[in-house]
Nucleic acid binder design. Structure first.
Lengths: 222, 222
DNA sequence: TGATTTCTGTTGAATTTTCAACAAAAGGGA
DNA sequence: TCCCTTTTGTTGAAAATTCAACAGAAATCA
C-alpha cells in the first residue's frame, strides 16, 4: 500500500488528509489492492455496486455495452482517479456499466458502506471523506455535461472537432495525444469507425488538422 | 416560505431534517424564493454558478444550446427536485447550461458557499446537508448514465424505444405520459423532429405502440 | 527475423437522418 | 366564437451514417 502513497495523496478523495492519517484510514476502511492485466474486467455490468475504485497505476475504461454488442466508452480514468463512486453512493442494486483495464493496472477497492457509515472506532475523517466525495461527484457531473455537449452534435465531423477542441483547451496546446485508438474514439464519440477514419482524412486534406497516429494538431482556432 | 414546507421536506437535500429546524436553516442559508413565468430563464449559460436551485412548484428544463442554435434538453425537474448543484459544488466559473421555466414556477435559490462553508453560528446541520448533497449528486450521475444509454443508440427508432422503455419501467405501467411535446422529445433524444414523428407513426402502424398526444402505450414487452 | 494478429484507411451500396416546406389539427386569447 | 399561433404529421430530396469487405501498415510474439 505504501508504494502508492504518492498516487493516493493526489486522489481527490483524500484531499486535505495527511499521509500518516491516510494510511491508518485505509486500514480502517478495509481498502484492498488488486492487479488487473490489460483488457480484464475490473467491475462487471450487473454485479453489485458496493465498491468505490481508485486507479493506483495504469488506467481503466468505463464502458456500456448494449443488447446488440455496441460499445459506448463513457470515460477513461488514469492514476489517482476514482470510479464507480456514483453507483456505490447512490446504492443502486447493480452496476449499469462495465469497468475494464485499459492497461495493466493496480486498483484499490473500498467498500462504500465503510465510507458512508461511521465505524465503531468513530474515526474523525468521515466528514472530510464525504465532503471530498461530494466534490468529486460534482466534478464528474460537469465532465459528463462536457461529454454530452460533444456527443449531442449530429455529424461525425462536428463531434470529432468538438472533442479535439476540448482536448486542445484542456492541455493548453494545439498539439496533443488522445488516449484512444480509432475504434475507441469512435465508441467514445458514438459514431462509425470507418466513417471516423474517413472524416479524419478529409479534415487532413482540408488542412484543418494534422494527425499522426493518436497525436493531433488543430490548425484552426475553433 | 412556509407554504412550500411540504415540498421542501420531500426534497432530497433536506432528508432527515425536521420541519422546524429546516425553516431556521433556510434563514441561515439565506435562501430566497423567486417566481418565473413559463419560458423565462432561471439561470443563463455563462452566468456565475453560485446558486443551487430547488423547484418549489412547476418545473424547469436544463438545456444546452450550441453555437448553431441546436438545443439539447438534458433533463426536466419537477417539484422538490434540485438543479445546478453540480456546477455550484464543483465551483465552475460559468454555467455550461441554461435553466428555463417549463411551466410557471417558484424556485428557491441558495448560495452554495453557505452550504459548503460552515457559518459563524456553527449550525449543526451542515454535515447532514453535505451528506444529502453527495447522495443527490450520485443519483444524478446514475440518471445521466441512463440518458446516455438512450442517446447512444444510433437510430431514432432505437432511441425512442429505449426512452419509452425507461418511462414504462419507471412508472411500472405500459401506459404513461411523457413530459415533452414532439420537439422537446426530439431535443431530448437528439434526433430530428420530423423524423421522430414519422417513426412514431411507423411504430403505430406496426402495432408496437399506441400514442395519443404525449400519452404512450407500449404493446410489446421490451 | 518472420509469422500472425490487430489496427487503419478506403470504397461503394444500403440505410437513415436531416432539412425544408406545407397543410391539418390543436390550443390560446380576445 | 373567431382569429392567430403553435404543434404535429407527411413528404421528397439531399446529405450523412452505417455496414461489409478488403488491403496495407503497424504491432505483437515466438
Amino acid at each position: 500500500m505504501k508504494k502508492f502513497l504518492n498516487v493516493l495523496q493526489r486522489c481527490p478523495l483524500f484531499e486535505g488528509i495527511e499521509a500518516e492519517q491516510l494510511l491508518r484510514m485505509l486500514t480502517c476502511l478495509g481498502a484492498r489492492v488488486s492487479h488487473f492485466d490489460k483488457k480484464y474486467t475490473v467491475m462487471a455490468e450487473g454485479s453489485p455496486a458496493r465498491y468505490i475504485g481508485i486507479v493506483l497505476s495504469g488506467s481503466v475504461q468505463v464502458v456500456q455495452i448494449d443488447y446488440y454488442g455496441n460499445r459506448s466508452i463513457l470515460t477513461r480514468m488514469g492514476a489517482s482517479h476514482v470510479f464507480a463512486e456514483a453507483f456505490a453512493c447512490a446504492e443502486v442494486q447493480a452496476m449499469p456499466v462495465t469497468v475494464i483495464a485499459d492497461e495493466p493496472c493496480d486498483i484499490m477497492l473500498i467498500d462504500c458502506h465503510h465510507i458512508l457509515h461511521t465505524c465503531q472506532n468513530n474515526c474523525g475523517f468521515h466528514q472530510q471523506l464525504i465532503f471530498n466525495l461530494m466534490k468529486d461527484l460534482a466534478t464528474k457531473t460537469v465532465l459528463f455535461h462536457q461529454r454530452i455537449e460533444i456527443t449531442s452534435k449530429r455529424t461525425t465531423r462536428e463531434k470529432l472537432l468538438a472533442y479535439l477542441s476540448v482536448c486542445a483547451k484542456g492541455c493548453g496546446c494545439a498539439t496533443f495525444s488522445i488516449p484512444f485508438d480509432r475504434q475507441e474514439l469512435a465508441d467514445y464519440l458514438e459514431v462509425d469507425r470507418s466513417g471516423l477514419s474517413a472524416e479524419i482524412s478529409k479534415l487532413r486534406r482540408e488542412g484543418v488538422l494534422r494527425c499522426e497516429k493518436n497525436r493531433f494538431t488543430l490548425l484552426t482556432d475553433t
